[in-house]
């Protein structure tokens, strides 16, 4: 066997192996997706959206309480996280730039993005839940805000930096003060990018379960008072899936399906925004 033949054989072996591993990896992932869709569609019904939680065995049970709770917890977190993140990102890109302070903030936010979310839950337990004496929707929102903040901050920073400096200079030349340049020129130029960042940030925190376990806790019935413990899709999913009751497990799959579809659509939407921007 010549050297060339040997190389070709090794090449073919590696190609086959890596294609196989790609198939195995992708196969597993589609298995999970398939399971999710099959069980999810099977469990979906109108009751899911119109009924609250019920003891196991009751037919009229649904996820209305968890859907509304999830919407409120994530909504409030977005309300806080987005403006704070955008303003902090603005500082990095427009004022701090390459300064040591700005670089440190970038590094720390990068680390925070991958930090374990359950630890954020423990932190919020210590600063919100313990002093209040009970779990609350607010505590859940605070935890999600902390997780969302670095994501929005870094994408805003990146997106603002993509705005060409000639645009800023042109606005300065017209005599506009810096805040006006930022608000009316830079933000406008980076609109699609910032929006994508927000969508991805919301998608990320919407799937968080661990930091809600001991902040917003759970409630099997509808509650719209943020001062009280609140149901979320993720924690409800966890509790229902680990229960021994089949109808609860079914509701858990429905919650998993709704949540995943929501998160996937946000991700796809975000991609479309970015693509549209590149297409211009």
């Amino acid at each position: 066997m010549t050297h060339t033949q040997k190389r070709i054989i090794i090449n073919n072996v590696v190609m086959v192996l890596s294609t196989l591993s790609a198939l195995v990896g992708i196969g597993f992932l589609f298995w999970i997706l398939g399971v999710l869709v099959m069980n999810g569609i099977d469990a979906l019904s109108w009751n899911i959206f119109t009924q609250e939680g019920a003891p196991p065995g009751y037919e009229d049970s649904g996820l209305k309480h968890a859907l509304i709770g999830q919407f409120m917890i994530v909504g409030v977190a977005t309300l806080f996280g987005v403006p704070l993140g955008i303003l902090a990102g603005t500082y990095l890109s427009e004022y701090g730039q390459k300064s040591k302070l700005a670089e440190t903030i970038r590094d720390i936010s990068d680390i925070m993005m991958s930090a374990p979310s359950i630890v954020i839950g423990a932190f919020v337990y210590a600063i919100v839940v313990a002093p209040m004496g009970h779990f609350s929707g607010w505590a859940g929102s605070v935890a999600l805000t902390i997780i969302m903040l670095p994501i929005i901050l870094r994408t805003t920073d990146d997106m603002l930096q993509l705005v060409p400096s000639t645009l800023r200079e042109a606005a300065f030349a017209l005599g506009a003060p810096k805040y006006k340049v930022i608000l009316q020129v830079v933000y406008r130029g980076a609109k699609a990018g910032i929006l994508t960042g927000i969508l991805l940030g919301v998608a990320r925190v919407a799937g968080e379960t661990a930091p809600l376990l001991f902040t917003s806790f759970n409630d099997n019935f509808l509650n719209t008072d943020m001062m009280e413990p609140m149901a979320s899709l993720t924690v409800t999913m966890y509790n229902y899936a680990t229960s021994p009751y089949e109808d609860w497990q079914k509701l858990g799959w429905a919650a998993a399906f709704i949540l995943s579809m929501f998160i996937l659509s946000l991700n796809i939407l975000g991609r479309l925004f970015i693509m549209k921007r590149k297409g211009k």
């Binding site: 997706l33 799937g207 999913m237 858990g252 995943s260 996937l264 991700n267």
Partner: peptide
């Protein structure tokens, strides 16, 4: 990339 966005609680449930 989209699968990377699926919440980990779903992997756990599966």
């Amino acid at each position: 990339e989209l699968l990377a966005a699926i919440p980990s609680v779903i992997y756990g449930m599966w």
